[in-house]
Computed example of a mutant assay.
Amino acid sequence: MARVLAGPFFCGALLGFLNLSGLAVEVTVPTEPLSRPLGGTAELSCTYSTSVGDNFALEWSFVQPGKPISTSLPILYFTNGHLYPTGSKAERASLLHNPPTGGVATLKLADLHPSDTGTYLCQVNNPPDFYTSGMGLINLTVLVAPSNPLCSQSGSTSVGGSAALRCSSSEGAPKPVYNWVHLGSFPTPPPGSMVQDEVSGQLILTNLSLTSSGTYRCVASNQMGSASCELTLSVTDSSEGRVAGTLIGVLLGVLLLSVAAFCLIRFQKERKKEPKETYRGSDLREDATAPGIFEQASRRAGYSKGLPERSSPASTMATTKSKLSMVV
């Protein structure tokens, strides 16, 4: 039993002795996140307590949002009495107290960019001091006003249909909230027919009517400012379209009938203008053939194709009789 208690007691006493003897490195940073406006200056407070020796070293590094600490990028080093800025922030980074040997290792970052948002690590190393991690974390947010949002729409825009209006800004910190407004003096939409999500910037319109038409404005805002865009929604009535189509068909039919009637009347008038041929019984044509003679001539023509031409007695007699009749 004495051996069991001796272990924890000895370790606690050793830690207490190390702490009292100054072999511990303790780093203190703010617990609350830090916010500064775009283009401004941020002072990231960091203090430490240790017995500064020849091996004292300070390092500031940066971690992008959502990434692990192992991916941190260096900003500056202080070692062997010299300061070494490094990385993309080197020209804008400095120490509030240089050299940082008096217990203050505060980082000063000027001309803040949107890319400066993230986690900053203040790490003090002072061998042979080894107690505690010697590191502190500070979260910095660079405040940026929303950029001009982009408005878009999708869905059916006919009466009774549903449409979705969307609004989004590419920049803005903290993330903007979105608010849609229907411009103009229109009746209040029925409950549930106009639902918006302030986080995603989406406006859902259901059971559309002709009064849903008009201009809609989306306002993106945060604590740094606001920006807006507008969109015009045109709701159409499909029944009016069918009526219009029927009316156009009727008008085309009437037009075709009118053209046909016009052509018919024009044709009738042209026929009336043409001269008509009249036949009078007393008029004789010079090339007319007496009845009976045409038949005999036809028969002779038929026989003449295969036989030598002969004069038949019957036809001679008929001709003689005809001549006698004419003389009498």
Rank of each mutant, 00 (worst) to 15 (best):
A220V: 08
V142Y: 03
T215N: 00
A57G: 10
F17T: 12
P187W: 04
Y279W: 03
Y48K: 00
A260V: 15
A93D: 00
N126E: 07
D111V: 03
G39T: 10
P68W: 01
V328Y: 02
C11V: 15
R166I: 08
L14Q: 07
L251N: 09
S311C: 01
K272P: 00
P190I: 08
T47A: 13
A163E: 08
T157I: 02
T119C: 06
G184E: 05
L205M: 04
A90V: 03
P275I: 00
K108P: 06
V27A: 01
F62T: 00
R217W: 04
A57T: 08
L34M: 14
Q202M: 14
A261C: 03
L233G: 08
V124K: 07
S162D: 10
Y77H: 13
G214R: 08
D287V: 13
L73H: 05
R92I: 05
Q196F: 05
F267R: 03
S162P: 10
V27G: 03
L15C: 12
S185W: 06
A290W: 14
C11P: 05
V144L: 06
Y216D: 08
G103Q: 11
Y77F: 14
L34D: 06
V52P: 09
V250M: 06
V29S: 01
S228L: 05
A297I: 03
S152Y: 00
M224F: 05
V159T: 02
A227P: 06
N148I: 12
G225L: 08
G201K: 01
V177R: 13
S212W: 00
S312Q: 06
Y303H: 07
S51M: 13
M326V: 03
A2L: 14
C167R: 10
A314K: 07
D54R: 14
L18D: 02
K273I: 09
Y84C: 02
K175A: 04
A110G: 05
P37V: 04
T31V: 10
S45M: 12
A173C: 10
S213Q: 07
L15K: 02
E295R: 00
I138C: 04
Q202I: 15
V327F: 07
N55Q: 11
P68F: 01
T101G: 10
L109Y: 14
S258G: 13
S282D: 09
N126I: 06
T236H: 12
C263S: 14
S94K: 13
P127V: 09
P127A: 12
R280F: 13
G16Y: 12
R271G: 03
T79W: 13
L95I: 15
V63Q: 05
V243R: 15
